[in-house]
């Protein structure tokens, strides 16, 4: 069975014929579109390394069938900021030492972008920790991650950093 879809990834439209319906959004991004910034960790929705924005909402790309994304607008880590510039979250992750090995970082940053867009948690560290619990960091950089997300959330809201 072949199934044709149209989707926009980081602003670029793609028309794709899926010859295998088993392809997940994660495999589509990495293997067919060459966007390897989105990482495969557990492939079971448990680690968050594959987090991308689908129509502005954060999702686990490993548990989303490509076929289900027909018509969707996808943003990956490659499309978060204009070429050559850092997104405020990327700058905050550097500033707050929010990673060590870096494997979970694209998923952490995309999840944080989704969290800030949801607007429910503000810059409250404890609510941010809960809101980011779908992203594991085996290096244990959680303290820096929470601080980076809080700083980016504050700058997004036009507040000065405490």
């Amino acid at each position: 069975m072949t199934f044709s879809i149209t989707l926009t990834v980081n602003g670029t439209p793609h028309h794709l014929a899926l010859d295998d319906l088993r392809v997940t959004l994660l495999d589509l991004l990495r293997d067919r579109l060459g966007l390897t910034g989105t990482k495969k960790g557990c492939d079971r929705g448990q680690c968050g390394a594959c987090t991308v924005l689908v129509n502005g909402r954060r999702l686990n790309a490993c548990l989303a069938l490509a076929a289900q994304q027909d018509g969707a607008e996808i943003t990956t880590i490659e499309g978060l900021a204009p070429e050559g510039r850092l997104h405020p979250l990327q700058a905050a992750f550097l500033e707050h030492d929010a990673f060590q090995c870096g494997y979970c970082t694209p998923g952490q940053i995309m999840s944080a972008a989704g969290l800030i867009a949801e607007g429910a948690d503000g810059a409250d560290i404890e609510r941010i920790r809960e809101g980011m619990s779908g992203n594991l960091c085996r290096c244990g950089a959680y303290r820096g991650i929470a601080r980076a997300v809080a700083a980016a959330a504050q700058s997004e809201n036009g507040e000065t950093e405490a």
């Binding site: 999702l59 548990l63 999840s111 809101g131 619990s133 779908g134 992203n135």
Partner: peptide, 9 residues
């Protein structure tokens, strides 16, 4: 329940 990503889906 679950995580924010899973609750969105």
């Amino acid at each position: 329940g679950a995580s924010a990503q899973l609750r969105n889906a």
